[in-house]
């Protein structure tokens, strides 16, 4: 398990390096000089940047190596557009917001997906199954901004109807602010996980070892938890990495729609304003974060499935 973890971490570092290099190359291929007069807002920022990134030197290898060195030290540089603010500061402020939202969305998606999937499988072809699976198809095919708009509309109606402001429609600050956007953000993934969990549960319900458990006189609830759910959930864990990635990128849209000051919105704004350092910083940060998540999920999988852990 240790060797496996170390190997995965090394692979992860290589992946992040690749992402960083691609980002660097892309930034230098965009037409126009990143430090062209319209972009670099003030003279002081411009001088700062020139000194820092060796912009008077050739792009390759000098600038590239400086860039890599900075990234390796975790120094993402200074924003092009927000005076005197380092990219690190901006990320440090915005990321926790996105992380809270994302974690809540992942919890919604994973718990909802696992429970709904198990429920539909155990009631196969009966009414709850048919209804939920219909909603799942909607959930998979409808984009999240539509859900966002519908969700906001529903909350407005609800608040009107009760005459109280039960849930805020947008913004950030309290737990109530998080609920609706997290639900919207997790919905597509929840639908996808429900479908996966359902088919995996259907495979498990009639396995030989479930029959053995019954033949042992194990009560139904325990058969469900210990024998069916635990084995059925394995395929769901393997896709949790990509699911986290989907929720992370989904955050771009949801944070914009709900006016949430998270990293997703920061990134979209950075692109709109061509804030090169901020784009590169957030891209590499996102890359590293997702790589880490995937490794973490793999390790968790190994912990749940002894064949991976010990085999």
């Amino acid at each position: 398990m240790w060797r496996y973890t170390v190997r995965r971490l090394i692979q992860g570092v290589i992946t992040v390096w690749f992402i960083a290099t691609a980002t660097f190359a892309a930034m230098h291929m965009v037409p126009g000089d990143p430090l062209g007069s319209e972009r670099a807002t003030t003279e002081s920022i411009r001088q700062n940047l020139e000194a820092r990134y060796g912009l008077d030197k050739p792009v390759f290898p000098d600038q590239y190596l400086i860039f890599l060195g900075n990234m390796a030290r975790g120094d993402f540089g200074i924003s092009f557009t927000q005076q005197n603010r380092s990219v690190n500061d901006i990320i440090r402020e915005a990321f926790p917001v996105s992380a809270q939202l994302g974690v809540l969305a992942v919890i919604f998606a994973a718990l909802g997906g696992v429970l709904l999937g198990a429920l539909t499988a155990l009631n196969r072809n009966r009414l709850p199954d048919v209804i939920i699976m219909f909603l799942v198809i909607l959930g998979i095919s409808i984009p999240s901004f539509v859900f966002a708009a519908l969700g906001q509309l529903a909350v407005v109606r609800l608040n009107d109807w009760t005459g109280q402001s039960l849930l805020p429609v947008a913004g950030w600050g309290t737990f109530q602010h998080m609920l609706l956007p997290a639900l919207v953000l997790g919905l597509g993934t929840m639908a996808f996980l429900t479908r996966l969990m359902r088919s995996s549960m259907l495979e498990v319900v009639n396995t030989d070892y479930v029959r053995t458990a019954r033949a042992k006189g194990v009560p139904p609830l325990r058969v469900f938890w210990r024998h069916q759910l635990r084995n059925a959930v394995l395929p769901v864990i393997t896709v949790l990495g990509p699911a986290i990635a989907a929720i992370t990128t989904g955050g771009f849209v949801v944070e914009l729609v709900f006016a949430i000051p998270g990293l997703g919105r920061t990134f979209v704004e950075a692109v709109q304003q061509l804030d090169y350092t901020l784009i590169m910083g957030t891209t590499v940060f996102y890359g590293a974060f997702l790589v880490l998540m995937v490794i973490l999920v793999d390790i968790i999988y190994g912990w749940v499935d002894p064949r991976v852990r010990l085999g």
Binding site: Y209, T212, A213, P219
Partner: peptide, 26 residues
């Protein structure tokens, strides 16, 4: 519920394929 007091207790059962008859994660 009554049956579960008998199965595994007063009657034991084994099956054809031992490779799939035990829970792989326990």
């Amino acid at each position: 519920r009554t049956l579960n007091r008998i199965r595994g207790n007063r009657i034991g059962m084994i099956f054809q394929d031992p490779m799939t008859s035990l829970n792989p994660t326990m």
